[in-house]
Computed example of a mutant assay.
Amino acid sequence: MKKTNVTLRRKVLADGRISLYLDFYPPILNPETNKLTRREFLKLYLFEKPKTRIQKISNIENLHTAELIQIRRQNELRKYDIYSAFEKEQLELKKIGEASFMKYINNLADQKAGKNFAIWISAIAHFKDFLKEQDISFKDINVTLINDYREYLLKAKSRRDTGNVLARNTALSYYNKLKTTLKRAYKEGKLRNDINAGIDSIKEAETQRNFLTLNEAKILFNTPCSSQIVYKISMFSTLTGLRYSDISKLIWSEIEFIEHDGYYIVKLSDIDHCFPI
């Protein structure tokens, strides 16, 4: 493997200052972005044409600091070159373990959209409340912590409905978001142990489903409605059992007529089979 050289370089900025940065060749892996990079900007600046004694002293001090950082980076890289394969692996595991878990779960949430995104954000907010801090690293994630979080969710107050405890199925939804994150992190090698295999689950609460009797349906159909479209959708939903979300996506090509059997809905996005209407 070719050794990496670290060179101190300068870049003239639009405001007349000179920015000092390190140039790595070949490129090195940036632990924050997990991408190869050739530059590390030091946030140290020189005056291109120092006019005062203070500016001259500032140039000398900043340049000296930049040179020390360059030497330190070069020594770090050269020291890494002589590590054994095992030592390098341990260093990588240590670096991964110290990475931010909260940044990771927030990045996953950012990939969601609509209502699902809102649920992820609420789940993360409750996890932060449980931690009583803003961050936690991967190495601090363990079975005991997640089981404690499970117990917290079962007693946690709703952030929207102040004073009321989270509904069990809401707690389950938030808990599953964390489990999804743990599963992905383990798959990507960010967690050394499969935390999901050792944690307890939250049992889904049974929900009561109400159905209209035939007499109740007749009363509904005979009740005046100012909007014909609402009335027709209600009738269609009652007679077919379809949710409004299914009806709103229904297109004519999904309705087929079978002779001697009537009309059927087929290929509906959320339905795996066809049924008569």
Rank of each mutant, 00 (worst) to 15 (best):
Glu216Ser: 04
Leu212Ile: 03
Arg73Ser: 01
Leu242Ser: 03
Pro276Asp: 06
Leu268Ile: 00
Arg168Ser: 04
Leu154Tyr: 07
Ala113Pro: 15
Tyr149Trp: 08
Asp194Phe: 12
Lys115Asp: 09
Lys157Val: 01
Glu76Pro: 14
Ala113Thr: 15
Asn210His: 14
His126Leu: 05
Gly97Asp: 05
Phe86Val: 06
Phe211Trp: 15
Phe127His: 12
Ile54His: 14
Leu46Cys: 09
Asp270Ile: 02
Phe211Asp: 05
Arg192Pro: 03
Glu204Ala: 06
Pro27Ser: 04
Tyr25His: 10
Leu182Ile: 02
Arg78Leu: 11
Leu91Ala: 07
Glu204Cys: 01
Ala185Asp: 11
Pro31Trp: 00
Tyr83Gln: 11
Ile28Met: 12
Leu131Lys: 15
Thr180Ser: 06
Tyr186Lys: 11
Glu92His: 14
Ser19Arg: 06
Arg78Pro: 12
Asn193Pro: 13
Thr213Arg: 15
Ile82Ala: 05
Pro224Cys: 01
Gln74Asp: 01
Ala85Cys: 07
His273Leu: 09
Gln134Thr: 09
Gly114Asn: 09
Cys225Ser: 10
Arg10Tyr: 12
Leu22Met: 06
Leu20Val: 01
Ile247Asp: 13
Pro27Glu: 06
Asn106Tyr: 10
Leu268Tyr: 04
Lys157Glu: 10
Ile121Ala: 11
Ile199Gly: 07
Lys49Pro: 06
Glu216Arg: 06
Lys94Glu: 15
Asp161Pro: 10
Asn196His: 07
Tyr104Gly: 09
Ser245Phe: 04
Arg9Lys: 13
Leu42His: 02
Arg72Ser: 09
Arg73Met: 02
Ile195Gln: 10
His260Cys: 10
Ala66Gln: 01
Asn215Gly: 08
Ala205Asp: 14
Lys132Ser: 09
Lys112Arg: 10
Gln208Arg: 08
Tyr45Pro: 05
Ile247Phe: 12
Pro31Glu: 00
Gln90Asp: 09
Ile124Trp: 02
Lys94Ser: 13
Gln90His: 15
Phe275Ser: 13
Gln74Val: 00
Ser226Val: 11
Asp161Gly: 06
Tyr175Lys: 13
Thr52Gly: 03
Ile271Met: 13
Ile96Cys: 12
Asp246Gln: 13
Lys11Val: 01
Ile96Trp: 10
Asn222Val: 01
Ile258Pro: 11
Cys274Ser: 15
Leu250Val: 02
Phe211Ser: 04
Asp23Arg: 15
Met235Val: 09
Lys94Met: 12
Ile258Lys: 15
Gln55Met: 04
Phe86Thr: 11
Leu166His: 07
Asn116Ala: 05
Thr238Gly: 08
Thr207Pro: 11
Lys35His: 09
Lys190Trp: 05
Tyr25Ala: 02
Asp110Asn: 13
Tyr186Gln: 03
Lys179Leu: 08
Leu36Ile: 05
Gly114Glu: 05
Ile247Ala: 09
Ala205Leu: 06
Pro31Thr: 00
Pro31His: 01
Asp23His: 13
Asp129Met: 03
Ile119Gln: 07
Glu76Ala: 06
Met102Tyr: 07
Gly262Pro: 10
Tyr25Cys: 05
Gly163Val: 00
Glu40Thr: 01
Glu259Gly: 04
Asn193Glu: 15
Asn147Ile: 00
Tyr21Trp: 10
Phe221His: 07
Ser122Asn: 13
Lys179Gly: 03
Pro50Leu: 00
Lys112Ile: 01
Ser237Leu: 01
Phe101Asp: 03
Glu32Cys: 05
Thr4Gly: 08
Thr4Arg: 13
Arg160Ser: 10
Thr162Tyr: 13
Val143Asp: 09
